[in-house]
């Protein structure tokens, strides 16, 4: 379950940021709302479809998702946008426009690494 959620959050961030490359889309939606909605739908799909769940429920797959997400975000945003756009997505979703980007970035890095370590232990028992 944790691995499904972890993968869903990572893929959702990548999908949201990819969509933000379209200015028309960015101007018309709450990007944070899209992030949380896509994460919810993906988490449901990943946990309900058994073959998918089995495939994703491994540390290797979670690590792969993390690497792909980081590489994808770097490709889409570059060094300038990487510390700003993912944090702004979270900030807009939480409707907390005074939250500092640095604070959100620290929380995102902690969640990404902490989640990965957590999947290392949980995936052994959740097959």
């Amino acid at each position: 379950m944790i691995a499904c959620l972890y993968n869903a959050l990572l893929w959702s961030m990548l999908i949201t940021v990819a969509n933000l490359q379209n200015e028309w889309f960015d101007m018309r939606v709450n990007t944070g709302g899209i992030f949380f909605a896509v994460a919810f739908v993906l988490a449901l799909l990943f946990s309900m479809i058994k073959p998918l769940r089995k495939k994703l429920n491994s540390f290797a797959m979670c690590f792969f998702s993390l690497v792909i997400t980081c590489a994808g975000l770097f490709y889409l945003l570059g060094i300038e946008g990487l510390p700003v756009i993912p944090a702004s997505v979270i900030r807009e979703g939480l409707m907390q426009n005074h939250l500092d980007f640095h604070v959100i970035n620290i929380a995102l890095i902690a969640a990404a690494l902490g989640g990965l370590i957590l999947t290392l232990f949980t995936t052994k028992y959740e097959r």
Binding site: D26, E80, G81, V84, I85, S88, N97
Partner: peptide
Amino acid sequence: NGKYLVSPTKHALSYFKGGNGEKAILR
């Protein structure tokens, strides 16, 4: 709004409670 120092937008200034409040360079 630091987001639009790195990302394109058509809004220079928007009221923070408005629909485009988070879509402008200045809130």
